[in-house]
């Protein structure tokens, strides 16, 4: 047993979990299952809908960690917009009902490697960052909107702004990409002028 784990175990104990902890674990398992189904199902739209379940599960986890604001934003952005966008795209490409045989690509091993690496990185970062921090559920809400806002705009303003610049860059890039079709016409008109 590592010292950190030992500390955690002695502090609160794994062996007498509270109801919230059990719920957290169960929701986590369900979320993981949905996520696995998302990437393994052969039906495109089903994959998108399993993604909804997975993202919703994460939102529930946030809720259990008392970060209400983050949970609702998660639902609003990911379930309400990103998945809708995904479904929109799937519908535009006329996703078939039933399994699509060409849903598999040859990059499976590579994707798996990337996924495992990303998951490892995330787990390592989170574990390293929080170690044995414990949320006291009895002592009121600790992830309230006020608390989140304060820490976001006091301590983490720089990453926040950096992210917004990143998003802005993505936006500009999207506009540039979507305007690409206009170029040949310009060239043509240029030719005509000549």
């Amino acid at each position: 047993m590592s010292p950190a784990l030992h500390l955690a175990a002695t502090g609160h104990g794994f062996l007498s979990p509270t109801g919230v902890e059990i719920a957290f674990l169960l929701v986590g398992i369900a979320t993981l299952g949905a996520a696995v189904l998302t990437v393994t199902t052969k039906q495109l739209v089903h994959a998108a809908l399993w993604l909804v379940v997975a993202l919703g599960g994460i939102a529930v986890e946030y809720l259990l960690l008392t970060a209400e604001f983050i949970a609702w934003v998660q639902v609003l952005i990911y379930v309400g917009s990103v998945v809708v966008l995904l479904l929109f795209g799937l519908m535009l490409t006329k996703a078939p009902i039933g399994p699509s045989p060409d849903a598999d690509s040859g990059n499976r091993p590579a994707a798996l490697a990337v996924a495992v690496a990303a998951a490892g990185l995330l787990v390592w970062v989170v574990v390293d960052a929080f170690r044995t921090t414990w949320i006291e559920l009895d002592k009121g809400v600790q992830g309230s909107t006020a608390a989140s806002g304060e820490s976001l705009f006091r301590h983490w303003v720089l990453p926040f702004e950096a992210l917004s610049v990143l998003l802005l860059a993505a936006l500009v890039g999207a506009i540039v990409l979507s305007r690409k079709t206009a170029e040949p016409r310009d060239a043509q008109s240029g030719k005509e002028k000549r």
Binding site: V52, W72, V73, V75, L76, V79, G80, S81, V83, V84, L87
Partner: peptide, 8 residues
Amino acid sequence: AVMGVGVL
């Protein structure tokens, strides 16, 4: 957020 889910 929840209203957006309804559209799903």
